[in-house]
Structure formats: structure tokens, C-alpha cells
Design a protein around this nucleic acid. Structure first.
Length: 884
RNA sequence: GCCCGCCUGGCGGAACGGUAGACGCAGCGGACUUAAAAUCCGCAGUCCAAAAGGGCGUGGGGGUUCGAGUCCCCCGGCGGGCACCA
């Protein structure tokens, strides 16, 4: 083969011209990208059957589906690029990859558009979808579009209604009272985000809590399983599992019944408390109940001031953040409870704004000595603080608490029969005694609450229930499904349009035939997104899912989305999967075997001198005397203040339109930049300079191939016998294959990009190395292909003209282990952990040789002079360290 | 407030507990050009030094280790979630 000779002939690489002789060679992405997109579609490269074929492993890649807000944003570009890289890589690795797309299409913004602009929510939503679908297609994503659906398609939500009825029959659905944010002026239930500083966002009225009868999924029944199964999710980020575990919130403690010592006959004569610290019962100084507690109601009934306090608590909103951040306040009801252990002792009962009705029993006993919140509360209201846990080594006779409670382990004292026990033993002893005297029991308590799914809104999936005076709650019979949303709805009135629709809710009871009323609440949109991943497996089926399809494709092998969904969406999906398992729809328990959570896309923000937010395209930049950046308004000299780098948001106008970027630079460039900037789990900053750099690289890669092309040997020429410079290039090629593969496997896409950059530099510096060069160029094309798929097809068509194969159809490259081995290795030589030099040794050199070489190294020797070596450390392939 | 993260040059970042700053962006110098753009070559953490070399350096403080960006503790700043935004 002539390869070795040609490489020998060109040993002096520096003589090869480095300037590009044909600078006009450019990649025309505008024509190439649509052309390759059409080719992929024509060959159905990304379509898979509902039931995976046997013989090849399946791989299900899914990104969290978008809400159709109208335009895609950079967060979508990042999300779908990440998924696309994974899907293309796994396909090359021989998997049959399902990679679908759909729309999370129900929700509030469509109703807001209807109220504000008079557009029907359905039209608004489907118009948005059409627009966003076109934008996504321009990104060149390898998606199976034949599976697309929107959750607002009646074909989807009708199936969801079937699932609900199955869950209902299986006893996974309950009707319960719960509290909502009520806007008394608009007569509307408000979402938490619609409550701003305690007021309705539209009316400005003070929001009140109101109790409504609502539908709930019994997610708490699965609390133990949802917690334990986290241990099986070995491809989920630990932090997400930790957050879920904390959310589920298993805690061991006791329920303690307190007898009322002083209370009017009309009030409950007993109050039950949940505590995780029954060992501190002797340090009790008060009992506190939530404002919604029956005892609070009893107090309010006879004491106007108590009633006023309860009313105030009702104006606090329903969000936990609002409640916990509010100043801790309370009201003494005048009632008293007896102590379970101390004969004759009694304590005041307070109503407190920090006690949550939803957690435990809605009542606590206060032990200020050993609990932060109780301490704060007792200090504020002058309640007694009795220490009952002694820190290790403290003297019981002289111990005092100072200005903070003591919450760590210690020894019980001032505690009667518990004295001398540590916290854990005292807990056990206290529970034993409570159980023996019939005043309480040891229990496991969960923080997780049942999932309330009723929403008083139009643009959601109708809950398929009929309310009958005679028969009560009657599920809609399967034959009458789907319960379709009416099209003719009136948004000019506040409240739920379904409820004041003239005819929709009036139906005959399916059971007794008498006039009855439809449920006018619709589902929480989290229900829609709790099973869409299963529907994708058989999106046109006449039942919610088909067994063969879900059994074949589930679980999702790689799920990708924002960290903001770490708890609710993922937990609800995990519950729903179990519900579907219980009702015979599928057989897996966990929907997502692998999870990756991406960071946000951020951008600098800009403000004009008069404080207006400005879009990036309204601003231009120049350099000041010190090389810093100065911003001014485009087309003028008006100064612009460069603000913080923040998450892109419409309100701050720091958004960049992906459509404009793709138009200007092409999809490959947008994808390449978004992957190259930083690790995908971190927030990334979108910068104009960064995109421009990515664009330059795409052109450089094109030139690299295009200019080398005339000098390359024919396709298929073996590079096996390469020597000298050609062999070096081959080693670089195979090291890059190994490094990029490793980076893609670990989601280190920015590292993959860096390795491809390095490799491009190496190829550019290499001389005429014949078949080795062809191998290198073909390799870089294929290694870059998951990230820049259009350019890769273009380059491949240049390198292999007439073959007609697509990179999208080619297998992944394997590195040749023989070319990965190095002959020598560079070792760092340290003296006392400080680097003093490096030595180059053969990989198989023995330790004595290595130490001798290291000691002889000039700078090391100088450092060692006059000192005696006490210890020699050698970490093979890494470092030598001399301790003196 | 509670839970969970993150913090490395001017910037984004790289680095199985083992040569900190790979790679890129911005910058500077040079080549090419009538000129600019594009492209190509080179420099670059910081301080001291002519250089050789040395000191300092991964938000701050402490610890473990022959050796810490990496492990542990405390503190600070920034971000995500908190059950009706999606």
C-alpha cells in the first residue's frame, strides 16, 4: 500500500500550506438543512413500530413535552437537542429508538388568552401547536412525528377519562374537602401564582381560603412504595431522589391524645397531636392547633377575638411557603389540656398560624426547649421554656438553654420516668407508656398528601362523573365516553364557563334516569402529563394503551427535562404508573429508568436609562478605554445598563428567539453552541459571541473536509499499515473516538465538543497522511453527527459520493484498542506534594528506575539537595511524590 | 421559613483524591489584503524575576491526607422546589 510512503514523503508537516487556498468554500446550511430533513423523512429514519421488533434492543428517549405557548424558546432548544443527541447516538449503537413528540396542551394560559383577547382556547392552542411544530422541525430533530398528539385532543383526554374510571373502580379516587384560594370579587378559584401578596392578580381583592369538595387520587396509599422504590432508580440524580424522599417525608413518632382540662361543653373534649419527639413531653408548655382545627372553630364560636384571628389566618393563602414565611403568631383560646404523664398539670391551647391542618393531626404540643419554631413562639408570647434533654457532658444542676433551643441528642432529665435515657430510648419509653395508658400510639406519619385534581376551569379534561340527587356520585358509563368539552363557551363572566354553560352540565342520571348534573370541574393538567409517555407507545389505540406496546417500550430509558419538575410531575407520573399497573394497563412500576435534569438557559438583561427592559436585539456594544463593554441603544447614543445574567423571561425581555438564530446560523450551529457551552445540568448563558464561534467551527469543519477531499485516497483504502505521522494521526483518531464515546455516554456533551475541536486542530496540522487522513475526516464527521446531523450528512456525501448511505443509518465507531496504547507516560514528580518537574518513562518501567529518574530530574534534584528522603510514593501512570 | 443544588482565569468551562486552567469565547501581537471581513500563525491565571525559577491561587474559614477543585465541618453568595404555573 502506498500509504506509508506518502506519509514518509511528507514528514515535514510544517511545509504544508496552512493558509486556506480556497477561502470561498462555504457550507450552505440554508439549502442543506431542509434537504437532509426531507431525506430523513423520506426514508422514515426515525419511525418505529408500536411493538418493538425482536432481536434488537429497544431504547425510549423522551424529553418533557412542551406547553404550546406559541413559540419555542431556548429552553426547548436545549431540551430537545440533548434528547436528540442521545437518540441519534443510541440508534447508531444498534438500538431501535423511540423518540416521540407531543403537546401538554391544557392549562391556564389558553383561558387567559380567551379572557384577554377573546380567542377560543382551542383555536389559540392549536394555532400555537402548528407554529411550534414547524419551528421544532427546523431544528432537525430525529423524531417519530407519526406519534404526535396533544393532551387537548379528545382522542387523548377521552382515554384519560377511561383511566380515571378504572382508578375510581379500583378505589384510588376519593372525594374530600380541601381549601382553595378564593377571590371574593371575581368569584373565582385562584392558582397560587395568581395570588400576589395575598391579593387576586386581576381583582386586587384580598384572597380568602375557601373549603370545597374535590376529587383526589389516593397517592398516599403508595407513599411507602414510592419511597422505597427510589432505591431502584440508579440512573436518577441523587438530588432528585433526595428531594422526593423528603417530599414523601416518612417520620416515626406518636399520636398523643390530650384530655381537655378546661373547655366549654360544646368544644371537643379531646385533642390529638402528632409528634416526632414524644421524649420531650415533660418539656411541654403549650398546645397549638391550626386555624382550621375544630378546636379553633369552637374557640371562635364563643370568642369574637378568636374568630377574628381565625379569619386573619384564612387570609394567609394556601401555599406552604407563604405560611412558613409569615411571622409566627398565635391566639390563646383560654382552653387548657391535661398532661398525659403529669397528674394535675395543664397547659394553654393556642391557635397558631404556623400549624398546618394538612400535616399530622393539625395540632402540636409545644416544647420550646428543643424545637426551633416552638422556641420562637414561646419567646414571643412569654410561654415557659423547660429544658428536658441534657447535652452530653452538661451538668443537670446548672444547665440552661441560653438564646437557642437544644435539638441534638442527649440525656432526658426533668422528665420523670424518662430520666437518664438518650433521645431514642426515651422516645420508645414514652410511646410504651402512652400505649399502656391508652393515651396514644406509636405511628409512622407521612408528609405526602393526597393529590387533589379538581380544577374549576374550562380548558382541561372533564372529570367523567355525574352527580345525582338520588344516586349520589355516578361515574359516566364507558359507552358515554368521551365527555367532550363544549365549544360554545362564554369567557365574559368570571368563574368556570363549564358551570354556567346553559346546557352542558344537565344530563340524565345513568343510574336512575332522573335529571342530574355533570361534574363541571376538570383535571389538574399534571394528570395529562402523568401518562403521556405510555400513550406515545400506541398513540392511536382505542384504549388508553395497548399492552404489547407498553410492555415492549416502557420504561422510558432516558427522560430529560427541567429540574423544576423534580418533585411533582415525576412523583405524579410514578404514582400514575402504579395506578395503571393496579388496573391492568401495564406491568412496570417505574415510568422513567433514567432521568437527566438540564439547567436553564440564561441571558444578560438590559435596561434603558429610564428603567425599561430592553430586548438584546435593541442593544449594541462597543469597547471602553479599559477593554470593558459599553452598551447603547441601537441607532442612537442612549446609554443602556447591562444587568444580571438571569433565566430568560418575557417580563425581563432577555430572550433570544430560536427561530431567528436558526434563520441566521442554521440549526446545527444552534445545537452545537447549546451543547458546547457548559455541562447540560448547569444553567447556561446564551451569548451572541458563543453562537458566532459555533458557526465558525461548523464552517471550519466543512472546509477541513472539502479542501482535503481532492488529495484523499479512495474510500475504503486501508490505513492499517500507517507509520510515523500517519500512525500518530490514527492514534489521535482512535483516542478521540474513545473520548467522544465516553463523553456521550456520560452526558458530558461539552467535553465531547472539546475533544472534537482538539481533533480538528490535530487533523489540520497533519500533513498528507493518505488513508489515515481519510479515516480521521470520516471519523470526525461521524463523531460530530449526533450534534450537527445536517452538516455530517453533507460531509459524508462529499467523502462517500455515490454511496447513498446516510450517517443517520450508520453504526457508531469503535476505537481500536491497539491504537489507544501509549508507549511512554509522563509522570509528575512532587516533593512534599509540590510539583517540581515531570519525567517521561516507558509504560512498563519498574519502580526503581522511575524513582532514580525522578530523583535525577534537574529541578527535583535541586529541591531534594540537602534533604533526606523519608518516603517515596509512586502512583503508576500519575505521580511520584518524595516526602522529606 | 423548610427541602435540594451550585460557586475554578476577563467569560463558559476541563481535571479516576495525583502536572489546576484541556477546549472554546473575548483580548493582544503577527501573516494575508489597497482596506475590511473571513482565514491562518502565535501569546496569555496572578505576583516577583532579564531568565532559570519561585510565591500565591478553584467563594471565605477550619480539618482529614504523602498529596484536596475533588472528602468532612462551619460560614457567605446565587439558584430550583414548596402541593392550583407548566
Amino acid at each position: 500500500m502506498p500509504t506509508q510512503f506518502s506519509s514518509m514523503a511528507m514528514t515535514d508537516a510544517s511545509t504544508t500550506p496552512r493558509t486556506d487556498p480556497r477561502p470561498e468554500i462555504r457550507h450552505d446550511f440554508k439549502s442543506a438543512e431542509p434537504r437532509w430533513q426531507a431525506e430523513w423523512e423520506k426514508r422514515a429514519c426515525f419511525a418505529v413500530p408500536d411493538v418493538p421488533e425482536s432481536g434488537r434492543p429497544k431504547y425510549y428517549v423522551l424529553e418533557m413535552f412542551p406547553y404550546p405557548s406559541g413559540k419555542i424558546h431556548m429552553g426547548h432548544v436545549r431540551n430537545y437537542t440533548l434528547g436528540d443527541v442521545v437518540s441519534r447516538y443510541k440508534r447508531a449503537r444498534g438500538h431501535q429508538v423511540m423518540h416521540p413528540m407531543g403537546w401538554d396542551a391544557f392549562g391556564l394560559p389558553a383561558e387567559n388568552a380567551a379572557r384577554e383577547r377573546g380567542i377560543h382556547p382551542g383555536k389559540w392552542t392549536y394555532d400555537n401547536i402548528a407554529n411550534m411544530r414547524a419551528e421544532l422541525k427546523r431544528m432537525g430533530l430525529g423524531l417519530d412525528w407519526s406519534r404526535e398528539f396533544a393532551t387537548c385532543d379528545v382522542e387523548y383526554y377521552g382515554q384519560q377519562q377511561k383511566l380515571f374510571l378504572d382508578f375510581f373502580k379500583a378505589g384510588l379516587v376519593e372525594r374530600k374537602e380541601s381549601w382553595v384560594n378564593w377571590d371574593p370579587v371575581d368569584g373565582t378559584v385562584l392558582a397560587n401564582e395568581q395570588v400576589i401578596d395575598g391579593r387576586g392578580w386581576r381583582s386586587g381583592a384580598l384572597v380568602e381560603k375557601k373549603q370545597l369538595s374535590q376529587w383526589f387520587f389516593s397517592i398516599t396509599r403508595y407513599a411507602p412504595e414510592l419511597l422505597e422504590a427510589l432505591g431502584t432508580l440508579d440512573r436518577w440524580p441523587d438530588r432528585v431522589k433526595t428531594m422526593q424522599a423528603n417530599w414523601i417525608g416518612r417520620s416515626e413518632g406518636a399520636r398523643v391524645r390530650f384530655r381537655m382540662a378546661e373547655a366549654p361543653p360544646a368544644a371537643p373534649q379531646e385533642v390529638e397531636v402528632f409528634t416526632t419527639r414524644p421524649d420531650t413531653l415533660f418539656g411541654m408548655s403549650f398546645l397549638a392547633v391550626a386555624a382550621e382545627h375544630p378546636l379553633a372553630a369552637a374557640a371562635a364560636a364563643r370568642d369574637p377575638k378568636a374568630a377574628e384571628f381565625v379569619a386573619e389566618c384564612r387570609r394567609m393563602g394556601t401555599s406552604e411557603a407563604a405560611i412558613e414565611q409569615a411571622e409566627k403568631r398565635g391566639y390563646d383560646t383560654g382552653f387548657r389540656v391535661a398532661h398525659p404523664f403529669i397528674e394535675g398539670a395543664s397547659y394553654p391551647v393556642w391557635i397558631a398560624n404556623f400549624v398546618l391542618m394538612e400535616y399530622g393531626t393539625g395540632a402540636i404540643f409545644g416544647c420550646p426547649g428543643h424545637d426551633e419554631r416552638d422556641f420562637e413562639f414561646a419567646s414571643k408570647y412569654g410561654l415557659e421554656i423547660i429544658p428536658v434533654v441534657l447535652p452530653p457532658g452538661a451538668d443537670p444542676a446548672s444547665f440552661t438553654l441560653g438564646d437557642a433551643p437544644y435539638t441534638d441528642d442527649g440525656t432526658a432529665f426533668n422528665s420523670g420516668f424518662l430520666d437518664g435515657l438518650n433521645v431514642a430510648a426515651a422516645k420508645r419509653a414514652a410511646i410504651e407508656k402512652l400505649e399502656a395508658t391508652g393515651q396514644g400510639t406509636g405511628v409512622v406519619n407521612w408528609r405526602l398528601r393526597d393529590w387533589g385534581v379538581s380544577r374549576q376551569r374550562y380548558w382541561g379534561c372533564p372529570i367523567p362523573i355525574i352527580h345525582c340527587e338520588a344516586c349520589g356520585v355516578v361515574p359516566v358509563p364507558a359507552a358515554q365516553l368521551p365527555v367532550e368539552l363544549p365549544q360554545d363557551v362564554d369567557f365574559s363572566r368570571p368563574g368556570n364557563p363549564l358551570d354556567h354553560h346553559p346546557s352542558w352540565k344537565h344530563v340524565d342520571c345513568p343510574s336512575c334516569g332522573k335529571p342530574a348534573r355533570r361534574e363541571t370541574d376538570t383535571f389538574d393538567t399534571f394528570v395529562d402529563s402523568s401518562w403521556y409517555f405510555a400513550r406515545f407507545c400506541s398513540p392511536r389505540a382505542a384504549e388508553p394503551v395497548t399492552r404489547a406496546a407498553v410492555d415492549g417500550w416502557l420504561p422510558v430509558d432516558q427522560y430529560i427535562g427541567g429540574i423544576e419538575h423534580a418533585i411533582l410531575h415525576l412523583l405524579y407520573s410514578r404514582f400514575f404508573t402504579r395506578g395503571m399497573r393496579e388496573t391492568g394497563h401495564l406491568s412496570v412500576s417505574e415510568p422513567f429508568a433514567g432521568l437527566f435534569t438540564q439547567g436553564m438557559v440564561t441571558h444578560e438583561s438590559y435596561k434603558s436609562a429610564d428603567g425599561r427592559w430592553l430586548y438584546p436585539e435593541e442593544v449594541e456594544f462597543s469597547a471602553d478605554a479599559n477593554g470593558g463593554r459599553i452598551a447603547t441603544l441601537k441607532g442612537g447614543n442612549e446609554p443602556v445598563v447591562i444587568g444580571r445574567v438571569e433565566a430568560m423571561s418575557k417580563s425581563k425581555r432577555n430572550t433570544v428567539d430560536p427561530g431567528a438564530i436558526i434563520e441566521r446560523y442554521g440549526a446545527d450551529t444552534a445545537r452545537w453552541f447549546i451543547l458546547s457551552d457548559n455541562p447540560p445540568e448547569r444553567d447556561m448563558e446564551w451569548t451572541e459571541a458563543g453562537v458566532a464561534g459555533a458557526y465558525r467551527f461548523s464552517q471550519r469543519l466543512y472546509r477541513l473536509v472539502a479542501t482535503a477531499l481532492p488529495g484523499l485516497p479512495p474510500a475504503g483504502t486501508s490505513a492499517e499499515s500507517a507509520m510515523g505521522e500517519a500512525r500518530k494521526l490514527r492514534q489521535a483518531t482512535h483516542r478521540t473516538i474513545a473520548a467522544v464515546t465516553e463523553a456521550l455516554e456520560t452526558f458530558a456533551f461539552n467535553v465531547a465538543v472539546a475533544r472534537i475541536h482538539e481533533f480538528a486542530n490535530t487533523i489540520a496540522e497533519a500533513g498528507d497522511t493518505g488513508a489515515a487522513k481519510r479515516e480521521a475526516l470520516e471519523a470526525i464527521t461521524r463523531l460530530a453527527s449526533p450534534m450537527m446531523p445536517h452538516l455530517a450528512e453533507e460531509l459524508w456525501s462529499l467523502l462517500r459520493p455515490g454511496e447513498g448511505a446516510l450517517v443517520a443509518e450508520l453504526p457508531w465507531l469503535d476505537a481500536d484498542p491497539a491504537l489507544l496504547k501509549a508507549e511512554t507516560v509522563t509522570l509528575a514528580v512532587q516533593v512534599l506534594g509540590k510539583l517540581r518537574g515531570t519525567i517521561e518513562v516507558a509504560v512498563d518501567a519498574d519502580e526503581a528506575t522511575i524513582f532514580a529518574l525522578a530523583e535525577a530530574e534537574e529541578n527535583v534534584a535541586r529541591s531534594l539537595a540537602g534533604r533526606s528522603i523519608r518516603k517515596r510514593i509512586h502512583v503508576p501512570g500519575r505521580v511520584v511524590n518524595f516526602v522529606v
